[in-house]
Amino acid sequence: MSSIHEITLMLNGDPVEAAVAAHTLLVDFLRDSHALRGVKRSCDMQVCGACTVLVDGRPVSSCTMLAVDADGASVVTIEGLGGPDGLDPVQEAFLEHGALQCGFCTPGFILATKALLATNPSPSREEIVHHLSGNICRCTGYQKIIEAVESLAR
């Protein structure tokens, strides 16, 4: 059996202490231990971006990151955006532009967009397209996603 590790992290702004098996993937830790079902599981091989979360602000595929490696980090999932008073501007933009259909890839796209805007508040279309190349959407044809992100560029 694999060993158990104590980790501490900030999860959606709250401190969390947990004991995790060495082989536990971050996606399973978030979905199963913390009921953060907005973290979606699909390809399991870092291709589709559905399981994207922010680790210290960077977009990361949680299907290929171990939970132990999140020790000491700040992890943000879709549930950590916005708040009781309203939506995050990125969520609002996706909503307003109809930038989603089935919605399964949407949390990943929104978090990838958060990461982009944090480092580049006024991305060009080319930069947007390049930055979102790690996320696959099979429904929308991307057009409205690109429009939503463009609307946030300052």
Binding site: L36, G38, T77, E79, G82, Q91, F94, G103
Partner: peptide
Amino acid sequence: ARADLLEKVTGRAVYAS
């Protein structure tokens, strides 16, 4: 459309998985 889309952008929408 908004009610469904709202569930989806917040990650609250429940899927079979």
